[in-house]
């Protein structure tokens, strides 16, 4: 039971983290149809920015600087790059953000080297928040979860109760209409892009301490985030939240499962199906596969995603 609770909490925290990065991506995507391939790179930049600035101004200052800096990077990439190719259509935008993804990874390698940097949880935050049975739950994970929750409610409230939020929500549904009503959609979009990037940066700044801060972190999280957007449905925050939490909890539980593929085949009565070497592979070692498998299932069952009504 204790192990179950811990796994559940870990899964929720990881899911919320994934959601922090997905939220900006799905909103931007819903509003302008721009899939920002480099979105997860902003997550990576957040971690590096916090690592760099945290050395001089401490942990909390680093968080703030990382958030603002990555927001600015996002703003500039939208205004200086994406706008240039908008008239070519979505394909060219997609390629450009892919190039950005690639270049940012190489730039980080140039500046910080290809291996993880020593960005760690500061000592004053290394304590146990609470204990469940014999398992200790570190305060830092709690902080990660709290940050993500705060961000979720913040975003939700901003979308729900502000005028800009109203425009954004409307623009996600019907971009042309909102523009026809006289709202400056491009400005709102730039703002949304910057805020989405900043949130990814904040997520990176928080998560980079817990997970390795390396040039590969954009790639690792990026593909999961895509899965979330496909599963969650176009521009839907609720769908993205559901998908993120589901993936987080699923992965977290799978890591704790000690069965192997052999057990699965035997349980299914397929014991004779001897795929060489596969039966010795433990589920826990391929927990990372689960999100992708889930995506394929959702595609079969509901191609437009959980909350998708526009295909």
């Amino acid at each position: 039971m204790d192990a179950f609770l811990v796994a559940l909490l870990n899964g929720l925290v990881y899911g919320l983290l994934v959601f922090m990065v997905s939220a900006g991506l799905t909103l931007v995507f819903g509003m302008m149809g721009v899939l920002n391939f480099a979105h997860a790179s902003f997550y990576m930049l957040g971690a590096y920015a916090a690592f760099l600035s945290g050395r001089y101004i401490g942990f909390w200052g680093g968080l703030i600087v990382a958030t603002l800096a990555v927001g600015l990077v996002g703003l500039f990439s939208e205004r200086l790059l994406l706008r240039k190719v908008r008239s070519f259509g979505h394909t060219q935008e997609l390629l450009l953000t892919y190039g950005l993804f690639f270049v940012l990874e190489e730039l980080v390698k140039l500046l910080f080297g290809p291996t993880p940097v020593a960005y760690r949880v500061p000592d004053e935050l290394r304590f146990t928040a609470f204990t469940i049975g014999n398992s200790q739950f570190p305060f830092f994970r709690l902080l990660m979860g709290a940050t993500a929750l705060l961000m979720f409610f913040g975003t939700y409230a901003a979308l729900r109760f502000t005028r800009i939020g109203l425009i954004v929500r409307a623009a996600v549904e019907r971009p042309q209409m909102v523009s026809a009503l006289g709202h400056n959609v491009p400005i709102v979009f730039s703002g949304l892009f910057a805020v989405g990037s900043a949130l990814a940066g904040l997520a990176g700044a928080v998560a980079g301490m817990y997970y390795p801060t390396s040039p590969a972190m954009a790639h690792e999280l990026g593909s999961i985030v895509f899965v979330v957007v496909v599963i969650g449905g176009l521009g839907s925050l609720n769908g993205a939240l559901a998908a993120s939490l589901l993936i987080g909890v699923m992965t977290s539980f799978a890591v704790g499962v000690e069965s192997t593929f052999g057990d699965l085949f035997r349980a299914l009565g397929l014991g004779g199906l001897a795929l060489p070497g596969l039966e010795a592979v433990q589920f826990s070692s391929i927990a990372g596969v689960l999100p992708y498998a889930l995506m394929l299932l959702v595609l079969l069952w509901r191609p437009a995603g959980f909350a998708g009504n526009r295909a």
């Binding site: 899939l35 895509f226 496909v230 060489p276 070497g277 592979v281 992708y292």
Partner: peptide
């Protein structure tokens, strides 16, 4: 773009399996 994202995800799926299936 959905197609693009799915191709990324499928690649990750295959990679995760292949990298564990040493034999």
């Amino acid at each position: 773009v959905y197609f693009a994202m799915i191709t990324v995800a499928i690649t990750e799926l295959v990679r995760a399996i292949v990298q564990r299936w040493d034999t």
